[in-house]
């Protein structure tokens, strides 16, 4: 299970909520054609209908594709560690059944351990601390092991 984070603050409002420490992504669903969108938006790019409802997205899915970010992103905008403190991290699209594919950081960054089609679960991920000492949290996906726990 995930280790509790002492003072979590989300990287931004309206992207996810923390439910018992686990992020839940905030999406929209088109009331006309059922298309799902993330982040939330008004106006459906599929059917052009302008009535959507807020939904919470699935917390489990399968890895559709992935890469490994091996060099530090430019900061700003990046909020994580750069320079000597930088560690490569995985990035992928996770397919949430019946909804959409969401882009996310992955907790795994070893190409040998990442496979298209593997089962993934959402977890909180600490990018760094803000000026008040809070942990700035974004969402990530972690591989699910055989017995259902995250590896």
């Amino acid at each position: 299970m995930t280790t509790p984070i002492a003072n979590p603050v989300a990287v931004a409002d309206g992207i996810f909520t923390l439910n018992d420490g686990q992020p839940v992504l905030l999406g929209s669903r088109c009331t006309n054609c059922d298309n799902h969108m993330f982040p939330r938006q008004h106006g459906c790019p599929r059917c052009m209908f302008n009535e959507q409802v807020d939904v919470e997205l699935a917390t489990r899915g399968t890895l559709w594709t992935w890469t490994v970010q091996a060099f530090p992103p430019k900061a700003p905008p990046y909020l994580g560690p750069v320079g000597d403190d930088f560690e490569p991290f995985g990035v992928g699209y996770v397919e949430l059944p019946g909804q959409l594919r969401v882009e996310a950081r992955l907790t795994e960054s070893d190409p040998e351990k990442l496979q298209i089609g593997m089962e993934m679960e959402i977890v909180p991920f600490v990018l760094g601390t803000d000026e008040d000492g809070n942990d700035v949290v974004t969402y990530a996906f972690a591989p699910v092991t055989q017995n259902g726990d995250q590896s």
Binding site: V11, V91, T138
Partner: peptide, 25 residues
Amino acid sequence: PRGKDWYGGSGLALTTQFFGMKINR
């Protein structure tokens, strides 16, 4: 893409990642 920069802040605003993910798939 919008609002407070959670996307770049989280380390996702790199075109290079897209190219790696598209060719990997």
